[in-house]
Amino acid sequence: MIPYGTGRPLLTPVDRDVSRRTARLRSLGLGERPDATFDSFADRVAEVTATPFSIVNFIDEKRQFFAGLHTPAGARGRSGLGAAAAGRGDRYLARDHGYCPHVLVRRKALVLEDVCDYPRFAGNPVVDEIGIRSYLGAPLIDRTGVALGTVCAVDTVPRAWGRAGLDTIKLLAREFVVQIECREGGHR
């Protein structure tokens, strides 16, 4: 799809639920600051999927926010995951970067064993800027039906995730939604 007047493909899908999601994130107090519990969950995702990066990602009107983040020790970079890994605390990424916005709008898990095999995804800035080559992500759909964000695992090399990877990331997303609902109910 080429938006009128731009002459280039639309890489990030139109997000019709962004206002509703943003309001829900604000009501839950999510998407503004890192959370040690969410970082621990991201560590677990990285361990289970054997990946160098994993993220609990909330997406609002302006940006993506990595509320939970696992990065390899000593990783370096100028922006996004690399900057966070370098210890700058930069947990933000533009809305048009990465694959989580696609998962959010589709409301379905996404498996990209090698992003370069998909022209739509190979041109994403995270390929050149961060070095992402494979992606496994699932939406975080809460009890109200709002897709709040995603949980994902990424690697800098192609990965054969297969059905097992898809099932794993979907299970982890459901598990994380339970954590959010427990927090909402005051059961920290």
Rank of each mutant, 00 (worst) to 15 (best):
33 R>C: 08
35 D>G: 04
35 D>P: 11
36 A>V: 14
41 F>A: 11
43 D>V: 01
44 R>Q: 14
44 R>Y: 13
46 A>R: 01
47 E>V: 09
48 V>N: 07
51 T>E: 01
54 S>I: 08
57 N>Y: 02
59 I>C: 03
61 E>I: 00
62 K>I: 03
63 R>G: 04
64 Q>A: 05
66 F>V: 07
67 A>E: 15
70 H>C: 06
71 T>R: 03
71 T>A: 12
71 T>K: 02
71 T>P: 02
73 A>Q: 07
74 G>Q: 06
75 A>G: 00
76 R>S: 10
81 L>F: 14
82 G>E: 05
82 G>T: 00
83 A>K: 11
83 A>M: 05
85 A>E: 04
88 R>E: 14
91 R>H: 12
93 L>K: 09
95 R>S: 13
98 G>Q: 11
99 Y>H: 10
99 Y>N: 05
99 Y>M: 13
103 V>Y: 02
105 V>G: 03
106 R>P: 00
108 K>L: 11
109 A>S: 15
109 A>I: 04
110 L>I: 12
113 E>Y: 00
116 C>W: 00
116 C>M: 13
118 Y>H: 15
121 F>I: 00
123 G>L: 05
129 E>T: 09
132 I>F: 12
136 L>A: 06
138 A>F: 06
140 L>N: 13
142 D>Q: 10
145 G>S: 09
146 V>P: 05
146 V>G: 01
147 A>D: 05
149 G>T: 09
150 T>E: 09
151 V>C: 11
156 T>I: 08
156 T>H: 12
159 R>C: 07
160 A>E: 14
161 W>M: 05
161 W>C: 01
161 W>H: 07
164 A>Q: 12
164 A>R: 12
167 D>R: 11
167 D>Q: 12
168 T>P: 08
169 I>F: 02
172 L>N: 11
176 F>A: 09
179 Q>G: 01
179 Q>K: 12
